[in-house]
Design a protein around this nucleic acid. Sequence first.
RNA 1: GCCCCUCUAGCUCAAUCGGCAGAGCAGUGGACUUUUAAUCCAUUGGUUCAGGGUUCGAGUCCCUGGGGGGGCACCA
Length: 516
Amino acid sequence: MADSLGLSELQKIRLRKVDQFRELGVEPYPTRTRRTHTTGEARARWYSIEKDQNDGGHDSEEITVAGRVVSRRHQGKTLFAHIHDGEGELQLYIRRDVLGDENYERALRLFDLGDFAQASGNLFMTRSGEVSLHVRDLQMLSKALNAPPEKWHGLQDVETRYRQRYADLISNAQVRAVFVMRSRIVTAIRQFLDGRGYMEVETPTLQPLYGGAAARPFITHHNALDQPFYLRIADELYLKRCMVGGFEKVYEITKDFRNEGIDRNHSPEFTMLEFYESFGDYERMMETVEQLVLHATRAVHGGPVFTYQGQEIDVTPPWPRKTLRDAIREASGVDYVAHPDQAGLMSAARAAGADIEEGTVWPRIVDEMLKQFVRPYLIQPMFLIDYPVELSPLAKRKPGDPTHVERFQPYVGGGEIGNAFTELNDPMDQYARFLEQKKDLDAGDLDAMQLDLDFINALMYGMPPAGGVGMGIDRLVMLLTDQSTIRDVILFPAMRNLPTVIGSAPAAEDVLADGN
RNA sequence: GCCCCUCUAGCUCAAUCGGCAGAGCAGUGGACUUUUAAUCCAUUGGUUCAGGGUUCGAGUCCCUGGGGGGGCACCA
Protein backbone atom coordinates (compact mmCIF):
# COMPACT_ATOMS: atom_id res chain seq x y z
CA MET A 1 0.00 0.00 0.00
CA ALA A 2 2.66 2.44 1.10
CA ASP A 3 4.65 1.60 -2.03
CA SER A 4 2.24 3.53 -4.22
CA LEU A 5 3.08 6.72 -2.30
CA GLY A 6 6.63 6.74 -3.63
CA LEU A 7 8.14 7.17 -0.16
CA SER A 8 11.68 8.45 0.24
CA GLU A 9 14.31 6.51 2.17
CA LEU A 10 13.80 8.73 5.21
CA GLN A 11 10.07 8.13 5.17
CA LYS A 12 10.53 4.38 4.82
CA ILE A 13 12.84 4.35 7.84
CA ARG A 14 10.21 6.10 9.93
CA LEU A 15 7.48 3.84 8.65
CA ARG A 16 9.58 0.87 9.76
CA LYS A 17 9.61 2.35 13.26
CA VAL A 18 5.81 2.33 13.21
CA ASP A 19 5.98 -1.41 12.58
CA GLN A 20 8.55 -1.87 15.32
CA PHE A 21 6.24 -0.17 17.82
CA ARG A 22 3.45 -2.53 16.86
CA GLU A 23 5.77 -5.53 17.10
CA LEU A 24 6.47 -4.42 20.67
CA GLY A 25 2.73 -4.30 21.30
CA VAL A 26 2.67 -0.51 21.43
CA GLU A 27 0.23 1.49 19.32
CA PRO A 28 2.15 4.44 17.79
CA TYR A 29 -1.11 6.35 17.25
CA PRO A 30 -2.94 5.80 20.54
CA THR A 31 -6.47 7.07 21.01
CA ARG A 32 -6.10 8.81 24.35
CA THR A 33 -3.70 11.27 25.91
CA ARG A 34 -3.38 12.00 29.60
CA ARG A 35 -1.74 15.40 29.63
CA THR A 36 -2.00 17.11 33.01
CA HIS A 37 -0.08 20.29 32.18
CA THR A 38 0.73 22.35 29.14
CA THR A 39 4.37 23.41 28.88
CA GLY A 40 3.34 26.87 30.02
CA GLU A 41 1.48 25.48 33.03
CA ALA A 42 4.43 23.26 33.88
CA ARG A 43 6.81 26.21 33.90
CA ALA A 44 4.40 28.29 35.95
CA ARG A 45 4.07 25.39 38.39
CA TRP A 46 7.83 25.21 38.84
CA TYR A 47 8.00 28.79 39.98
CA SER A 48 5.06 28.46 42.38
CA ILE A 49 5.89 25.25 44.28
CA GLU A 50 7.95 24.25 47.26
CA LYS A 51 10.96 22.31 45.99
CA ASP A 52 11.86 19.02 47.61
CA GLN A 53 15.42 19.67 48.78
CA ASN A 54 15.90 15.99 49.64
CA ASP A 55 15.58 15.13 45.96
CA GLY A 56 18.00 17.57 44.41
CA GLY A 57 15.36 20.24 44.28
CA HIS A 58 12.88 18.23 42.26
CA ASP A 59 9.14 18.80 42.19
CA SER A 60 7.78 15.96 44.34
CA GLU A 61 4.64 15.60 42.25
CA GLU A 62 4.64 13.87 38.88
CA ILE A 63 3.10 15.68 35.93
CA THR A 64 2.49 14.76 32.31
CA VAL A 65 3.11 16.97 29.31
CA ALA A 66 2.59 16.34 25.61
CA GLY A 67 3.89 17.91 22.44
CA ARG A 68 5.95 17.64 19.30
CA VAL A 69 9.60 16.62 19.65
CA VAL A 70 11.51 19.58 18.25
CA SER A 71 15.07 18.89 19.34
CA ARG A 72 17.12 15.96 20.56
CA ARG A 73 20.63 15.65 21.97
CA HIS A 74 21.80 12.40 23.37
CA GLN A 75 24.89 11.89 25.35
CA GLY A 76 25.57 8.30 26.20
CA LYS A 77 23.17 7.28 28.93
CA THR A 78 21.28 10.58 28.88
CA LEU A 79 18.97 12.12 26.32
CA PHE A 80 17.82 15.71 26.19
CA ALA A 81 14.87 16.69 24.07
CA HIS A 82 12.49 19.61 23.77
CA ILE A 83 8.82 19.19 23.14
CA HIS A 84 6.72 21.99 21.72
CA ASP A 85 3.05 22.53 22.36
CA GLY A 86 0.63 25.39 21.78
CA GLU A 87 2.21 27.43 24.56
CA GLY A 88 5.91 26.91 24.08
CA GLU A 89 8.62 24.39 24.76
CA LEU A 90 9.77 22.27 27.65
CA GLN A 91 12.99 20.31 27.96
CA LEU A 92 12.84 16.61 28.73
CA TYR A 93 15.69 14.96 30.62
CA ILE A 94 15.74 11.25 29.95
CA ARG A 95 18.10 8.86 31.69
CA ARG A 96 18.85 5.23 30.99
CA ASP A 97 18.91 4.31 34.68
CA VAL A 98 15.45 5.82 35.23
CA LEU A 99 13.66 4.50 32.15
CA GLY A 100 15.39 1.12 32.06
CA ASP A 101 17.37 -0.28 29.17
CA GLU A 102 14.44 -1.29 27.01
CA ASN A 103 12.52 1.97 27.26
CA TYR A 104 15.67 4.03 26.93
CA GLU A 105 16.62 2.21 23.74
CA ARG A 106 13.10 2.84 22.49
CA ALA A 107 13.40 6.57 23.24
CA LEU A 108 16.72 6.62 21.45
CA ARG A 109 15.81 4.58 18.37
CA LEU A 110 12.10 4.86 17.75
CA PHE A 111 11.46 8.52 18.57
CA ASP A 112 12.33 11.16 15.98
CA LEU A 113 12.08 14.86 15.49
CA GLY A 114 8.52 15.75 14.60
CA ASP A 115 6.84 12.98 16.60
CA PHE A 116 4.22 13.83 19.17
CA ALA A 117 5.19 12.40 22.53
CA GLN A 118 3.85 12.33 26.06
CA ALA A 119 6.24 12.51 28.97
CA SER A 120 5.57 12.00 32.68
CA GLY A 121 8.01 12.95 35.40
CA ASN A 122 9.10 15.55 37.89
CA LEU A 123 10.12 19.11 37.23
CA PHE A 124 13.60 20.26 38.16
CA MET A 125 16.13 22.82 37.04
CA THR A 126 19.27 21.83 35.17
CA ARG A 127 22.72 23.06 36.03
CA SER A 128 22.48 25.56 33.20
CA GLY A 129 19.25 26.92 34.63
CA GLU A 130 16.55 25.52 32.41
CA VAL A 131 13.32 24.21 33.87
CA SER A 132 13.08 20.62 32.67
CA LEU A 133 11.10 17.46 33.19
CA HIS A 134 12.98 14.49 34.66
CA VAL A 135 11.17 11.85 32.68
CA ARG A 136 9.93 8.62 34.33
CA ASP A 137 7.76 7.51 31.44
CA LEU A 138 7.72 8.34 27.76
CA GLN A 139 4.92 7.45 25.34
CA MET A 140 4.51 7.86 21.60
CA LEU A 141 1.36 9.83 20.75
CA SER A 142 1.76 10.17 17.02
CA LYS A 143 4.65 8.92 14.93
CA ALA A 144 5.63 11.42 12.22
CA LEU A 145 6.65 9.95 8.87
CA ASN A 146 7.92 13.21 7.44
CA ALA A 147 11.03 14.75 8.93
CA PRO A 148 10.53 18.38 9.90
CA PRO A 149 12.41 21.02 7.89
CA GLU A 150 15.95 21.97 8.79
CA LYS A 151 16.17 23.19 12.37
CA TRP A 152 18.33 26.25 11.95
CA HIS A 153 17.17 27.84 8.70
CA GLY A 154 13.60 26.56 8.82
CA LEU A 155 11.61 26.08 5.64
CA GLN A 156 12.72 28.75 3.17
CA ASP A 157 11.36 27.68 -0.20
CA VAL A 158 8.48 30.08 -0.85
CA GLU A 159 6.49 27.69 -2.96
CA THR A 160 6.73 24.86 -0.44
CA ARG A 161 5.85 27.27 2.36
CA TYR A 162 2.56 28.14 0.65
CA ARG A 163 1.73 24.70 -0.66
CA GLN A 164 2.61 22.96 2.61
CA ARG A 165 1.74 25.66 5.09
CA TYR A 166 1.62 23.04 7.84
CA ALA A 167 5.36 22.50 7.36
CA ASP A 168 5.91 26.26 7.31
CA LEU A 169 4.02 26.60 10.58
CA ILE A 170 5.96 23.75 12.17
CA SER A 171 9.33 25.24 11.42
CA ASN A 172 8.89 29.02 11.33
CA ALA A 173 7.80 30.62 14.58
CA GLN A 174 7.47 34.06 12.95
CA VAL A 175 4.92 32.63 10.54
CA ARG A 176 2.92 31.18 13.41
CA ALA A 177 3.06 34.57 15.08
CA VAL A 178 1.56 36.31 12.05
CA PHE A 179 -1.48 34.06 12.10
CA VAL A 180 -1.90 34.40 15.84
CA MET A 181 -1.96 38.15 15.30
CA ARG A 182 -4.44 37.79 12.48
CA SER A 183 -6.78 35.90 14.77
CA ARG A 184 -6.44 38.56 17.48
CA ILE A 185 -7.14 41.32 14.98
CA VAL A 186 -10.34 39.67 13.76
CA THR A 187 -11.43 39.03 17.33
CA ALA A 188 -10.74 42.67 18.21
CA ILE A 189 -12.81 43.87 15.27
CA ARG A 190 -15.76 41.75 16.36
CA GLN A 191 -15.43 42.99 19.94
CA PHE A 192 -15.32 46.57 18.78
CA LEU A 193 -18.36 46.36 16.52
CA ASP A 194 -20.34 44.25 18.98
CA GLY A 195 -19.53 46.86 21.61
CA ARG A 196 -20.96 49.57 19.41
CA GLY A 197 -24.26 47.79 19.05
CA TYR A 198 -23.60 46.14 15.71
CA MET A 199 -25.13 42.77 14.92
CA GLU A 200 -23.10 40.20 13.00
CA VAL A 201 -25.10 38.64 10.17
CA GLU A 202 -24.43 36.03 7.53
CA THR A 203 -25.53 36.65 3.96
CA PRO A 204 -25.30 34.35 0.95
CA THR A 205 -22.04 33.27 -0.60
CA LEU A 206 -23.93 31.61 -3.44
CA GLN A 207 -25.83 34.36 -5.17
CA PRO A 208 -28.15 34.23 -8.18
CA LEU A 209 -26.86 37.68 -9.14
CA TYR A 210 -23.56 39.18 -8.05
CA GLY A 211 -23.15 42.81 -7.14
CA GLY A 212 -21.84 45.46 -4.80
CA ALA A 213 -18.49 45.87 -6.53
CA ALA A 214 -16.94 46.03 -9.97
CA ALA A 215 -15.33 42.65 -10.49
CA ARG A 216 -15.56 39.44 -12.43
CA PRO A 217 -17.16 36.60 -10.48
CA PHE A 218 -16.62 32.88 -10.13
CA ILE A 219 -19.54 30.92 -11.53
CA THR A 220 -20.74 27.60 -10.21
CA HIS A 221 -23.76 25.41 -10.82
CA HIS A 222 -26.40 23.94 -8.57
CA ASN A 223 -27.39 20.49 -9.76
CA ALA A 224 -30.84 20.08 -8.21
CA LEU A 225 -31.97 23.57 -9.17
CA ASP A 226 -30.12 23.31 -12.48
CA GLN A 227 -29.11 26.94 -12.36
CA PRO A 228 -25.91 28.93 -12.10
CA PHE A 229 -24.81 30.59 -8.90
CA TYR A 230 -22.17 33.25 -8.52
CA LEU A 231 -19.75 33.34 -5.62
CA ARG A 232 -20.18 36.71 -3.96
CA ILE A 233 -17.88 39.56 -4.93
CA ALA A 234 -19.17 41.78 -2.09
CA ASP A 235 -21.63 41.72 0.80
CA GLU A 236 -23.03 45.17 0.21
CA LEU A 237 -26.41 44.57 -1.41
CA TYR A 238 -27.50 41.96 1.13
CA LEU A 239 -26.38 44.00 4.11
CA LYS A 240 -28.42 46.91 2.80
CA ARG A 241 -31.40 44.58 2.54
CA CYS A 242 -30.86 43.91 6.25
CA MET A 243 -31.13 47.64 6.95
CA VAL A 244 -34.29 47.78 4.89
CA GLY A 245 -35.59 45.03 7.14
CA GLY A 246 -34.92 47.11 10.22
CA PHE A 247 -31.59 45.91 11.56
CA GLU A 248 -29.93 49.25 12.21
CA LYS A 249 -26.28 48.27 12.54
CA VAL A 250 -25.05 45.18 10.79
CA TYR A 251 -21.69 43.75 9.89
CA GLU A 252 -20.28 40.71 8.21
CA ILE A 253 -16.77 39.27 8.10
CA THR A 254 -16.58 36.81 5.26
CA LYS A 255 -14.78 35.61 2.17
CA ASP A 256 -15.40 37.40 -1.10
CA PHE A 257 -14.29 35.94 -4.41
CA ARG A 258 -13.06 37.83 -7.43
CA ASN A 259 -11.97 36.11 -10.60
CA GLU A 260 -9.00 38.33 -11.34
CA GLY A 261 -5.24 38.35 -11.43
CA ILE A 262 -3.19 37.34 -8.42
CA ASP A 263 -0.47 39.57 -7.06
CA ARG A 264 0.99 40.67 -3.75
CA ASN A 265 -2.14 42.70 -2.98
CA HIS A 266 -4.80 40.50 -4.53
CA SER A 267 -5.97 37.00 -3.74
CA PRO A 268 -8.90 35.36 -5.56
CA GLU A 269 -10.53 34.70 -2.21
CA PHE A 270 -10.07 37.27 0.48
CA THR A 271 -11.69 38.29 3.72
CA MET A 272 -13.92 41.33 3.69
CA LEU A 273 -15.39 43.26 6.55
CA GLU A 274 -18.41 45.36 5.72
CA PHE A 275 -20.41 47.31 8.26
CA TYR A 276 -23.42 49.56 7.83
CA GLU A 277 -24.97 51.97 10.26
CA SER A 278 -28.48 53.29 9.79
CA PHE A 279 -28.83 57.02 10.36
CA GLY A 280 -25.09 57.36 9.99
CA ASP A 281 -23.19 59.14 7.25
CA TYR A 282 -19.61 59.12 6.07
CA GLU A 283 -18.51 61.49 8.84
CA ARG A 284 -19.80 59.03 11.38
CA MET A 285 -18.13 56.16 9.56
CA MET A 286 -14.75 57.91 9.48
CA GLU A 287 -14.88 58.23 13.24
CA THR A 288 -15.81 54.56 13.51
CA VAL A 289 -12.97 53.46 11.21
CA GLU A 290 -10.39 55.42 13.22
CA GLN A 291 -11.53 53.85 16.45
CA LEU A 292 -11.78 50.39 14.94
CA VAL A 293 -8.24 50.49 13.56
CA LEU A 294 -6.96 51.87 16.86
CA HIS A 295 -8.70 49.04 18.70
CA ALA A 296 -7.26 46.38 16.38
CA THR A 297 -3.79 47.92 16.59
CA ARG A 298 -3.88 47.95 20.39
CA ALA A 299 -4.93 44.31 20.38
CA VAL A 300 -1.69 43.25 18.71
CA HIS A 301 0.75 46.03 19.54
CA GLY A 302 -0.51 47.22 22.91
CA GLY A 303 -0.71 50.82 21.70
CA PRO A 304 -1.34 52.95 18.62
CA VAL A 305 2.17 52.70 17.13
CA PHE A 306 3.70 50.01 14.96
CA THR A 307 6.25 49.61 12.19
CA TYR A 308 5.37 48.78 8.61
CA GLN A 309 8.18 48.09 6.13
CA GLY A 310 10.59 50.21 8.12
CA GLN A 311 8.20 53.14 8.68
CA GLU A 312 6.79 53.97 12.08
CA ILE A 313 3.04 54.47 11.91
CA ASP A 314 0.79 56.01 14.55
CA VAL A 315 -2.95 55.42 14.19
CA THR A 316 -4.03 57.68 17.03
CA PRO A 317 -7.30 59.44 16.06
CA PRO A 318 -8.37 61.77 14.69
CA TRP A 319 -6.83 61.15 11.30
CA PRO A 320 -6.39 64.10 8.97
CA ARG A 321 -8.99 64.41 6.23
CA LYS A 322 -8.26 65.82 2.84
CA THR A 323 -10.38 66.01 -0.26
CA LEU A 324 -9.18 64.01 -3.19
CA ARG A 325 -9.17 67.22 -5.20
CA ASP A 326 -6.84 69.00 -2.77
CA ALA A 327 -4.58 65.99 -2.38
CA ILE A 328 -4.04 65.69 -6.12
CA ARG A 329 -3.73 69.45 -6.56
CA GLU A 330 -1.10 69.74 -3.82
CA ALA A 331 0.91 66.81 -5.09
CA SER A 332 0.79 67.53 -8.81
CA GLY A 333 -0.41 71.10 -9.27
CA VAL A 334 -3.32 69.80 -11.33
CA ASP A 335 -6.90 70.67 -10.37
CA TYR A 336 -9.06 68.12 -12.11
CA VAL A 337 -12.14 70.30 -11.62
CA ALA A 338 -10.51 72.84 -13.94
CA HIS A 339 -10.19 70.14 -16.60
CA PRO A 340 -13.64 68.61 -17.01
CA ASP A 341 -12.83 67.07 -20.38
CA GLN A 342 -10.70 64.00 -21.04
CA ALA A 343 -8.19 65.63 -23.39
CA GLY A 344 -7.56 68.63 -21.15
CA LEU A 345 -7.05 66.57 -18.02
CA MET A 346 -4.79 64.16 -19.88
CA SER A 347 -2.42 66.86 -21.10
CA ALA A 348 -2.35 68.53 -17.68
CA ALA A 349 -1.63 65.23 -15.95
CA ARG A 350 1.12 64.37 -18.39
CA ALA A 351 2.63 67.84 -18.07
CA ALA A 352 2.81 67.19 -14.33
CA GLY A 353 4.74 64.00 -14.99
CA ALA A 354 2.06 61.31 -14.87
CA ASP A 355 2.51 58.19 -16.95
CA ILE A 356 -0.94 57.56 -18.38
CA GLU A 357 -1.90 55.44 -21.33
CA GLU A 358 -3.53 57.05 -24.35
CA GLY A 359 -7.32 56.69 -24.40
CA THR A 360 -7.74 56.53 -20.63
CA VAL A 361 -11.19 57.86 -19.68
CA TRP A 362 -11.58 60.90 -17.43
CA PRO A 363 -12.38 59.13 -14.15
CA ARG A 364 -9.48 56.72 -14.70
CA ILE A 365 -7.10 59.63 -15.22
CA VAL A 366 -8.13 60.99 -11.83
CA ASP A 367 -7.58 57.55 -10.37
CA GLU A 368 -4.15 57.32 -11.99
CA MET A 369 -3.12 60.68 -10.57
CA LEU A 370 -4.23 59.48 -7.17
CA LYS A 371 -2.13 56.33 -7.59
CA GLN A 372 0.96 58.06 -8.93
CA PHE A 373 1.11 61.37 -7.09
CA VAL A 374 -0.68 60.82 -3.80
CA ARG A 375 -1.02 57.25 -2.62
CA PRO A 376 2.64 56.27 -2.20
CA TYR A 377 3.19 59.15 0.20
CA LEU A 378 0.25 58.53 2.53
CA ILE A 379 2.26 56.67 5.14
CA GLN A 380 0.55 58.06 8.22
CA PRO A 381 -3.21 57.45 8.42
CA MET A 382 -5.34 59.84 6.41
CA PHE A 383 -8.81 59.94 4.97
CA LEU A 384 -9.14 60.98 1.37
CA ILE A 385 -12.68 62.25 0.97
CA ASP A 386 -15.16 63.55 -1.61
CA TYR A 387 -14.58 61.67 -4.83
CA PRO A 388 -15.81 62.71 -8.27
CA VAL A 389 -19.21 61.18 -8.94
CA GLU A 390 -17.83 59.46 -12.02
CA LEU A 391 -15.54 57.33 -9.84
CA SER A 392 -18.24 56.27 -7.40
CA PRO A 393 -21.52 54.90 -8.73
CA LEU A 394 -22.81 53.69 -5.36
CA ALA A 395 -22.41 56.79 -3.20
CA LYS A 396 -24.64 59.76 -2.49
CA ARG A 397 -23.84 63.12 -3.99
CA LYS A 398 -22.59 65.90 -1.72
CA PRO A 399 -25.27 68.41 -0.81
CA GLY A 400 -24.45 71.56 -2.76
CA ASP A 401 -21.93 69.84 -5.05
CA PRO A 402 -23.52 67.37 -7.46
CA THR A 403 -20.12 66.66 -9.09
CA HIS A 404 -18.79 64.95 -5.98
CA VAL A 405 -20.02 62.18 -3.70
CA GLU A 406 -19.67 61.53 0.01
CA ARG A 407 -17.06 58.84 -0.16
CA PHE A 408 -13.83 58.26 1.73
CA GLN A 409 -10.94 55.87 1.66
CA PRO A 410 -8.65 55.38 4.65
CA TYR A 411 -4.98 55.26 3.66
CA VAL A 412 -2.24 53.85 5.86
CA GLY A 413 1.28 52.79 5.01
CA GLY A 414 0.99 53.87 1.40
CA GLY A 415 -2.09 51.79 0.66
CA GLU A 416 -5.82 51.96 0.96
CA ILE A 417 -7.39 49.78 3.60
CA GLY A 418 -11.04 50.42 2.83
CA ASN A 419 -13.74 52.20 0.96
CA ALA A 420 -16.82 53.89 2.37
CA PHE A 421 -19.82 55.97 1.42
CA THR A 422 -22.83 57.76 2.54
CA GLU A 423 -25.02 55.10 0.97
CA LEU A 424 -27.38 55.67 -1.89
CA ASN A 425 -30.93 54.92 -0.78
CA ASP A 426 -33.01 56.49 -3.56
CA PRO A 427 -34.47 53.46 -5.37
CA MET A 428 -35.07 55.28 -8.66
CA ASP A 429 -31.56 56.77 -8.68
CA GLN A 430 -30.17 53.29 -7.94
CA TYR A 431 -32.28 51.88 -10.76
CA ALA A 432 -30.91 54.50 -13.16
CA ARG A 433 -27.34 53.66 -12.12
CA PHE A 434 -27.97 49.95 -12.63
CA LEU A 435 -29.25 50.72 -16.11
CA GLU A 436 -26.02 52.60 -16.83
CA GLN A 437 -24.05 49.58 -15.62
CA LYS A 438 -26.23 47.32 -17.75
CA LYS A 439 -25.17 49.27 -20.82
CA ASP A 440 -21.53 48.66 -19.97
CA LEU A 441 -22.28 45.00 -19.27
CA ASP A 442 -24.00 44.57 -22.63
CA ALA A 443 -21.09 46.39 -24.25
CA GLY A 444 -18.81 43.65 -22.98
CA ASP A 445 -17.49 45.15 -19.73
CA LEU A 446 -17.13 41.98 -17.67
CA ASP A 447 -16.71 43.96 -14.45
CA ALA A 448 -19.91 45.94 -14.73
CA MET A 449 -22.67 45.33 -12.24
CA GLN A 450 -25.78 43.35 -12.98
CA LEU A 451 -29.27 44.75 -12.75
CA ASP A 452 -30.57 43.52 -9.40
CA LEU A 453 -34.31 44.16 -9.45
CA ASP A 454 -34.83 42.47 -6.12
CA PHE A 455 -32.45 44.99 -4.57
CA ILE A 456 -34.44 47.82 -6.17
CA ASN A 457 -37.58 46.26 -4.75
CA ALA A 458 -35.95 46.24 -1.31
CA LEU A 459 -35.00 49.91 -1.57
CA MET A 460 -38.59 50.67 -2.57
CA TYR A 461 -39.63 49.57 0.92
CA GLY A 462 -37.34 52.31 2.19
CA MET A 463 -33.75 52.09 3.40
CA PRO A 464 -32.78 54.53 6.12
CA PRO A 465 -30.01 57.01 5.41
CA ALA A 466 -26.84 55.14 6.27
CA GLY A 467 -23.10 55.04 6.21
CA GLY A 468 -21.28 51.93 5.08
CA VAL A 469 -17.68 50.75 5.10
CA GLY A 470 -15.83 47.95 3.40
CA MET A 471 -12.41 46.96 4.68
CA GLY A 472 -10.07 44.32 3.36
CA ILE A 473 -9.12 42.32 6.43
CA ASP A 474 -6.11 40.82 4.69
CA ARG A 475 -4.68 44.24 3.94
CA LEU A 476 -5.27 45.42 7.48
CA VAL A 477 -3.52 42.30 8.74
CA MET A 478 -0.62 42.87 6.32
CA LEU A 479 -0.22 46.33 7.75
CA LEU A 480 -0.38 45.29 11.39
CA THR A 481 1.90 42.27 10.93
CA ASP A 482 4.40 44.05 8.67
CA GLN A 483 3.92 41.69 5.74
CA SER A 484 4.31 42.98 2.19
CA THR A 485 2.56 40.06 0.48
CA ILE A 486 -1.07 39.06 0.93
CA ARG A 487 -0.10 35.38 0.69
CA ASP A 488 1.84 35.78 3.90
CA VAL A 489 -1.34 36.59 5.82
CA ILE A 490 -3.50 33.87 4.23
CA LEU A 491 -2.98 30.43 5.73
CA PHE A 492 -3.61 28.46 2.56
CA PRO A 493 -3.27 30.80 -0.43
CA ALA A 494 -4.69 29.71 -3.77
CA MET A 495 -2.05 28.02 -5.91
CA ARG A 496 -2.01 26.37 -9.28
CA ASN A 497 -2.98 22.73 -8.94
CA LEU A 498 -0.14 20.21 -9.18
CA PRO A 499 0.23 16.48 -8.62
CA THR A 500 1.08 16.07 -4.93
CA VAL A 501 4.57 14.79 -4.18
CA ILE A 502 4.68 12.71 -1.00
CA GLY A 503 8.21 11.36 -1.14
CA SER A 504 10.52 11.94 -4.04
CA ALA A 505 7.93 11.17 -6.75
CA PRO A 506 4.25 11.93 -7.31
CA ALA A 507 1.99 9.37 -5.65
CA ALA A 508 0.51 6.81 -8.04
CA GLU A 509 -3.09 7.83 -7.32
CA ASP A 510 -2.36 11.45 -8.07
CA VAL A 511 -0.62 10.70 -11.32
CA LEU A 512 -3.64 8.69 -12.43
CA ALA A 513 -6.10 11.30 -11.22
CA ASP A 514 -4.21 14.04 -12.97
CA GLY A 515 -4.89 12.47 -16.34
CA ASN A 516 -2.00 14.03 -18.19
C1' G B 1 -1.28 38.36 -21.75
C1' C B 2 4.12 40.51 -21.84
C1' C B 3 9.17 41.02 -19.48
C1' C B 4 12.93 39.56 -15.81
C1' C B 5 14.66 36.06 -12.05
C1' U B 6 14.50 31.17 -10.13
C1' C B 7 14.10 25.47 -9.65
C1' U B 8 20.54 20.73 -7.35
C1' A B 9 19.68 15.01 -1.49
C1' G B 10 13.92 15.11 3.19
C1' C B 11 15.57 20.58 4.56
C1' U B 12 19.36 24.86 3.93
C1' C B 13 22.83 25.76 0.29
C1' A B 14 27.75 24.98 -2.88
C1' A B 15 29.70 23.31 -7.68
C1' U B 16 35.51 28.32 -11.16
C1' C B 17 35.95 28.76 -18.14
C1' G B 18 31.45 23.30 -20.16
C1' G B 19 35.54 18.57 -17.22
C1' C B 20 34.47 12.66 -11.64
C1' A B 21 27.47 16.32 -8.52
C1' G B 22 29.45 18.30 -2.89
C1' A B 23 28.78 20.37 2.31
C1' G B 24 25.83 21.40 6.76
C1' C B 25 21.35 19.78 9.13
C1' A B 26 18.30 15.35 9.36
C1' G B 27 19.08 9.93 8.85
C1' U B 28 21.96 5.21 9.85
C1' G B 29 26.10 2.69 13.00
C1' G B 30 29.50 3.70 17.12
C1' A B 31 31.77 6.74 21.74
C1' C B 32 29.96 9.85 25.62
C1' U B 33 25.12 10.29 32.66
C1' U B 34 23.11 18.13 33.31
C1' U B 35 23.11 19.19 27.32
C1' U B 36 21.47 24.03 24.56
C1' A B 37 22.45 24.65 16.62
C1' A B 38 26.20 19.42 22.05
C1' U B 39 30.89 17.12 20.43
C1' C B 40 33.88 13.19 18.09
C1' C B 41 34.46 8.80 14.50
C1' A B 42 32.21 6.20 10.41
C1' U B 43 28.37 6.15 6.80
C1' U B 44 23.61 6.02 3.52
C1' G B 45 21.04 9.28 0.47
C1' G B 46 20.57 12.50 -6.49
C1' U B 47 15.24 11.70 -12.74
C1' U B 48 20.30 18.64 -10.87
C1' C B 49 11.77 20.64 -12.63
C1' A B 50 10.54 17.86 -17.63
C1' G B 51 11.71 17.04 -22.78
C1' G B 52 14.83 18.07 -26.84
C1' G B 53 19.49 20.24 -28.99
C1' U B 54 24.92 21.70 -29.32
C1' U B 55 29.40 19.08 -27.59
C1' C B 56 34.34 14.07 -26.88
C1' G B 57 31.79 15.73 -22.40
C1' A B 58 25.95 19.74 -19.96
C1' G B 59 23.74 21.18 -13.15
C1' U B 60 26.33 24.90 -16.28
C1' C B 61 25.27 26.81 -23.16
C1' C B 62 20.69 26.85 -26.74
C1' C B 63 15.28 25.65 -27.70
C1' U B 64 10.35 24.08 -25.96
C1' G B 65 7.24 23.17 -21.88
C1' G B 66 6.00 23.29 -16.35
C1' G B 67 6.07 25.35 -11.20
C1' G B 68 7.25 29.50 -8.15
C1' G B 69 8.76 34.70 -7.26
C1' G B 70 9.06 39.84 -8.94
C1' G B 71 7.57 43.71 -12.44
C1' C B 72 4.10 45.60 -16.23
C1' A B 73 -0.87 45.27 -17.88
C1' C B 74 -5.63 44.11 -15.86
C1' C B 75 -8.11 44.74 -11.33
C1' A B 76 -10.33 48.06 -5.74
